[in-house]
Simulated scan of single mutants.
Amino acid sequence: MSKGQLSINLATTRGSWGFAEAVDGCLRHDITAIAPWRDQVEAIGLKEAARIVETNKLRVTGLCRGGMFPAADEAGRQTNIDDNKRAIDEAVALNADCLVLVVGGLPGSSKDIVDARKQVTDGIAAILPYARENNMKLAIEPLHPMYAADRVCVNTLSHALDICVELGQGVGVAIDVYHVWWDPQLAEQIARAGQMGAIYAHHICDWLVPTKDLLLDRGMMGDGVIDLPGIRAMIEAAGFHGPQEVEIFSQDNWWKKPGDEVLQTCMTRFKTVC
């Protein structure tokens, strides 16, 4: 079975490189698909980042990130909507496959997760016409429930797909194995996403046992407990054959290693364990 293309989310080499250095490193290893973060693009300038992408004929498998919709008041919600429209502009300039949405958690001191989820759906609905006008797909990334309070209150693939159904064309999902591998409904929901044509991105890494930091201790593929080939097979059976995007936050391990070593390891593991 073909494994498709490898993409590097530039969070993976954040410990060593900015945008331009990461692109140079990827090209040294014949990797031509990337997924940058907005702060990395801002640091070099959108115009220069877009030039680098175009000159090197790179595929941008996603721009990270839009989202963070909930806020304590209407002014805050409008500020977040405006920022997401800027994110759409940036994704368009980079010719990204999609804008990844890390949708946000409970705003301020709120304990009302039902309202936070409503604000997420309302926020996506508010930017969707602009995304459609600009032919930019919006990819909701459900995150592990441990992030429900502060980062993302959409925590299952099922919930994300329900939002896609409610909002319609142009909204899909980014399936990150780190966040969904544990879900008893995973196979069913990946198949559902495929039937909807809603799989826009596939992110890979591994879940370490023990995990020392729930945000910044992701594992390299093969170092943890996730059945990467099994999930890949589900996603490909559902019709998505795009790149697998390595996204590793690892402040005490991979971010301390030279970028070229990180990329070489990503390539080896992609070939041998994914």
Results as ranks from 00 to 15, higher is better:
residue 3 K to A: 11
residue 5 Q to P: 12
residue 6 L to N: 10
residue 7 S to E: 10
residue 7 S to D: 13
residue 16 S to Y: 06
residue 20 A to K: 13
residue 21 E to R: 15
residue 31 I to T: 07
residue 33 A to E: 10
residue 33 A to W: 10
residue 34 I to S: 05
residue 35 A to N: 09
residue 36 P to R: 08
residue 38 R to N: 14
residue 41 V to H: 08
residue 49 A to H: 08
residue 51 R to K: 13
residue 53 V to L: 00
residue 53 V to A: 01
residue 62 G to F: 07
residue 62 G to A: 12
residue 63 L to W: 04
residue 64 C to H: 10
residue 64 C to V: 14
residue 65 R to K: 12
residue 69 F to I: 06
residue 69 F to R: 02
residue 69 F to P: 08
residue 77 R to W: 04
residue 82 D to R: 13
residue 83 D to F: 11
residue 84 N to V: 03
residue 87 A to N: 07
residue 87 A to L: 07
residue 97 D to K: 03
residue 98 C to H: 06
residue 98 C to N: 15
residue 98 C to E: 07
residue 99 L to F: 02
residue 100 V to S: 03
residue 102 V to C: 10
residue 106 L to R: 01
residue 110 S to R: 01
residue 111 K to N: 13
residue 114 V to H: 08
residue 121 T to H: 12
residue 134 N to S: 05
residue 134 N to E: 06
residue 138 L to T: 04
residue 139 A to Y: 03
residue 149 A to D: 14
residue 151 R to F: 07
residue 154 V to Q: 00
residue 156 T to S: 15
residue 157 L to R: 02
residue 160 A to N: 09
residue 162 D to G: 11
residue 163 I to K: 09
residue 168 G to K: 07
residue 170 G to D: 02
residue 174 A to D: 10
residue 174 A to R: 06
residue 175 I to S: 00
residue 177 V to D: 00
residue 178 Y to P: 02
residue 185 Q to S: 13
residue 186 L to R: 07
residue 186 L to E: 04
residue 187 A to L: 09
residue 190 I to R: 03
residue 192 R to I: 11
residue 194 G to L: 04
residue 194 G to Y: 06
residue 197 G to Q: 08
residue 205 C to R: 04
residue 206 D to L: 01
residue 206 D to T: 05
residue 206 D to C: 00
residue 207 W to I: 01
residue 210 P to I: 11
residue 217 D to E: 11
residue 220 M to W: 12
residue 226 I to Q: 00
residue 229 P to S: 01
residue 231 I to V: 02
residue 232 R to Q: 09
residue 235 I to K: 00
residue 236 E to Q: 13
residue 238 A to R: 05
residue 242 G to H: 05
residue 248 I to F: 00
residue 251 Q to C: 12
residue 252 D to W: 11
residue 252 D to P: 08
residue 255 W to V: 07
residue 255 W to G: 05
residue 260 D to Y: 13
residue 262 V to G: 05
residue 266 C to W: 05
residue 267 M to D: 11
residue 269 R to Y: 02
residue 272 T to L: 05
residue 274 C to I: 10
